Amino acid sequence: MKLCDYKKLNEEDQYRILWEQGVLIDACMDGEVKKLLYAIDNFYVELWCHTVTNKILWKLSFKQGKLLEKYLDKYSVQIN
């Protein structure tokens, strides 16, 4: 699935694809918000969940850029 096809889906279908095909890549805590990064084919979905209420606060799909870089910056890679 391509990112543009995913974005054309209604919210319910986007979540269905996320739960069925998404692979959890990373998770981090920011206060009472858990930020989860999922990969689906060639794009990513960032999900923010409130830890107390377990409600989804925000969802954004993307391919690259600052949203992805904040996760990549957590891991150092050394090439010899």
Rank of each mutant, 00 (worst) to 15 (best):
M1H: 11
M1R: 10
K2G: 05
K2Q: 09
K2L: 03
L3I: 00
C4N: 05
C4D: 09
D5P: 06
Y6A: 03
K7M: 07
L9Q: 11
E11M: 07
E11G: 03
E11H: 11
E12D: 04
E12A: 02
Y15C: 02
Y15N: 06
R16L: 12
R16Y: 13
R16D: 08
L18P: 02
L18I: 00
L18S: 01
W19C: 12
W19T: 10
W19Y: 15
Q21E: 08
V23P: 00
V23T: 13
L24Y: 05
L24V: 10
L24M: 13
I25W: 05
D26P: 06
A27G: 10
A27I: 04
A27Y: 09
C28Y: 15
C28R: 15
M29P: 04
M29I: 10
D30P: 01
D30Q: 11
D30S: 10
D30F: 07
D30N: 08
E32C: 12
E32Q: 15
E32N: 15
V33Q: 12
K35S: 06
K35D: 02
L36I: 08
L37C: 05
Y38V: 08
A39C: 15
D41R: 00
D41T: 00
D41M: 00
N42M: 11
N42V: 11
Y44D: 03
V45F: 04
E46F: 07
E46I: 06
L47V: 12
L47W: 01
W48F: 05
W48N: 09
W48L: 02
C49R: 12
C49S: 03
H50E: 05
H50G: 05
T51N: 02
T51M: 10
V52D: 13
V52G: 14
T53Y: 14
T53K: 07
T53E: 13
N54C: 11
N54T: 09
I56N: 12
I56R: 09
I56P: 10
I56W: 08
I56T: 10
L57C: 01
K59D: 07
L60R: 07
S61Q: 09
S61W: 02
S61R: 04
F62S: 06
K63V: 07
K63C: 11
G65E: 06
K66D: 05
E69C: 00
Y71K: 02
L72H: 06
L72K: 06
D73L: 01
K74R: 14
Y75T: 06
Y75V: 13
Y75D: 04
S76Q: 08
S76H: 13
S76I: 09
S76N: 11
S76K: 13
Q78D: 14
Q78S: 15
N80G: 15
N80Q: 15
